[in-house]
Design a protein around this nucleic acid. Structure first.
Lengths: 232, 232
DNA sequence: TTAGAGTCTTGATAAAGATCAAGCGAGGAA
DNA sequence: TTCCTCGCTTGATCTTTATCAAGACTCTAA
């Protein structure tokens, strides 16, 4: 592991409250690995042998059934993924692949499970992390069941604009076909949805998004914190 | 509270590992209430003041946006709901209403939060419960994104048949319009979906379901534990 | 620099699903 | 009982979304 990296990880909410000896022991058993783009890190159905921490690059979580595939989430540094499977000692429910070159830490699941039963600070942090994850999937589920595809796109753009400081312009940072899959539509329909939003103050050129009339867009999108606020 | 009730609750995985003094203290602050059918117990957006435990009757969790409404889950006794909101001390993401006459315990959220920081057994149980909840929403999300409405219905019927012991017949125990909403379709389309499944060994009369050819139905539904096994 | 592969867009068409309207039937209240 | 409400079903129609096909564009590697 590189100097400084371990300190960054230590600052993650999930690990910050661990006892020093437990943190050290847990990460002594860790593997750090560098992966090229488009590598499958995890296949759904496999036993959850490792908890993953993305240090650099980005990772896509996706799911498949009957030859269909859908993007469930993208994970950006520094963050963990597949915590629930590790804890339940169950199979992965989602697959994961690198989108760019990525640097990932693998923590043996057995060590994680052993640690959280004896370290109350770690247990607290896991509780908060899982509650957060649960609520964010519930929000996605509401998004999908209650909104049309154009409405989902409109709200997605407002969320990203907000995260980028409401500057009115930002970079998508994801291929459109993956965004389409994430939003539960086809790439073709994403193109058409963008055109529809041209009429509500949205301009997209390549990966550059410009929101020229946030009021108009928000009037159309009707965002609510109960779906669209990631911190709530 | 009625005699015996408290013992049943004590056996719930969430509470079984608590220290006796903490369990007693937590439930000394509890309110037991009886509600008629169709009463709104919780409105989404309200602060999560109570953790709820259903003792009798059943409760529907639903969500709304822009005058649309969708059923997210139904809770049968004995089970808790809205644990994540209680823990995060955030607003409810879903509303809840009684479907039948219901008996519910309300545990002040502040007490729950206080307790889990000091009771390791309770913390462990919360971790497992949240991980389970998280994984079950992920499965629902996959179901919704990867399958058509007829496929969702087919797999739902197989799951319920399995839970009823694979007898080949069982009772829906839920109004069809609510089932439709839960499955992400309209009541009209549920009717049509049922007709489609008549061709695959499914007969439904009122709330009575009969599966006359499970093989045929499974060949159509293509169930997978990674979506359809509630225990996995 | 060019060839090739993959992405994105657009149009035409098909499928899935929602809405509207009407009628049936079960269950509850007067 | 009778009336009324509400849930369920069915058909017709409309909207939304997916699929198929083709061309433009972008990026990369030889």
């Amino acid at each position: 592991m590189r100097p400084g990296e371990i300190d960054e990880i230590r600052k993650l909410p999930l690990f910050a409250a661990m006892l020093p000896e437990n943190f050290d022991a847990l990460f002594r058993g860790a593997y750090v690995q560098n992966f090229p783009p488009q590598i499958e890190l995890i296949r759904e159905g496999d036993p959850a042998d490792f908890l993953h921490v993305v240090l650099e690059g980005s990772v896509e979580l996706f799911a498949t059934w009957n030859n269909r595939e859908t993007t469930m989430a993208t994970v950006a540094p520094i963050a963990t993924f597949i915590l629930a499977a590790t804890i339940k000692n169950g199979p992965y429910l989602m697959s994961a692949r690198t989108l760019e070159k990525a640097r990932v830490i693998l923590l043996p699941s057995a060590d994680v499970r052993k640690t959280f039963t004896t370290d109350p600070g770690f247990a607290q942090a896991i509780i908060l992390d899982l509650a957060q994850c649960y609520r964010s999937v519930v929000k996605s589920h509401k998004d999908l069941k209650l909104r049309t595809s154009v409405e989902r796109l409109a709200n997605y753009l407002l969320r990203k604009d907000h995260q980028a400081g409401e500057q009115g312009h930002f970079d998508l940072k994801i291929e459109k076909r993956r965004l389409a899959s994430y939003l539960g539509m086809t790439a073709e329909n994403l193109s058409r949805a963008i055109r529809t939003l041209n009429g509500y103050g949205v301009e997209i050129e390549g990966s550059q998004v410009r929101i020229t009339d946030r009021k108009d867009l928000a009037a159309f999108a009707k965002p609510t914190p109960l779906i669209d606020d990631p911190k709530c």
